[in-house]
């Protein structure tokens, strides 16, 4: 564990807490894409199947359980909570998840490290996480008056991905056998998807205006 990875994981955790805070405090999930949340739940579900087969550390196990629990509770609120579910912008959240799920599944079958079910599902989760933010970014572009908590949620997610790149550089330099091309390429692509968002986020911050994506 290095400082970049710890910072990345904590930023990821805080982003999820910010989203839960928004839902609790405002009783609203306005501007949040259920499609992205569904995809993240799928990502965690498939990636953390090794919870049952391999013990890495207490930190690792606890974080996996927290990510699984929080992602499913967010989906629960958005789908079933009496008040919150009515604030979901279903008409605006139109991205077709199938267009990213199928290519990621095909890619995982073709490009993986090992022909085993667990490994292919794990690889699928890596590819899927890289593009799972797309429905959220599309919804943000359509949302007038993005609220602060939603903007900060996406900002924290992007920061978490950026910190993971620093972690990989650090590990590449300090751990001779650490090579993960699938994870690195997917991660760099994923971080790239936030570049546009970051530009408008800082523009809004500098000009002291509300965030809006053109």
């Amino acid at each position: 564990m290095n400082i970049f990875r710890l910072a990345a994981d904590m930023t990821h955790l805080i982003s999820i807490l910010v989203l839960l805070l928004k839902i609790h405090a405002t009783r609203s999930c306005r501007g949040i894409s259920l499609k992205t949340q569904d995809l993240y739940a799928l990502v965690f579900l498939f990636r953390y199947l090794d919870l049952f087969t391999r013990y890495i550390s207490l930190y690792n196990t606890v974080m996996k359980l927290v990510f699984l629990g929080t992602s499913f509770s967010i989906i629960y609120f958005m789908r079933f909570h009496r008040v919150v579910r009515n604030t979901y912008d279903k008409e605006q959240d139109t991205f077709r998840s199938i267009f990213i799920v199928v290519p990621c599944a095909v890619l995982a079958l073709l490009i993986n490290q090992e022909r085993s079910v667990l490994e292919i599902l794990w690889t699928f989760s890596i590819y899927l996480e890289a593009v799972a933010i797309l429905p959220q970014l599309v919804l943000l572009q359509r949302t007038q008056n993005i609220d602060n908590l939603t903007g900060n949620y996406v900002f924290l997610l992007g920061t978490y991905r950026g910190l993971y790149i620093l972690n990989w550089i650090y590990r590449y330099l300090t751990e001779p056998h650490y090579r993960q091309w699938i994870v690195w390429l997917s991660g760099v692509l994923q971080t790239g998807l936030y570049v546009d968002f970051f530009y408008y986020y800082f523009l809004a911050w500098r000009n002291n205006q509300k965030l809006s994506l053109p």
Binding site: I56, M63, W122, N167, Y178, Q180, V183
Partner: peptide, 10 residues
């Protein structure tokens, strides 16, 4: 490609 050792990341 890579090694499974680095699957210690979240």
């Amino acid at each position: 490609l890579g090694t499974t050792a680095s699957k210690d990341e979240l």
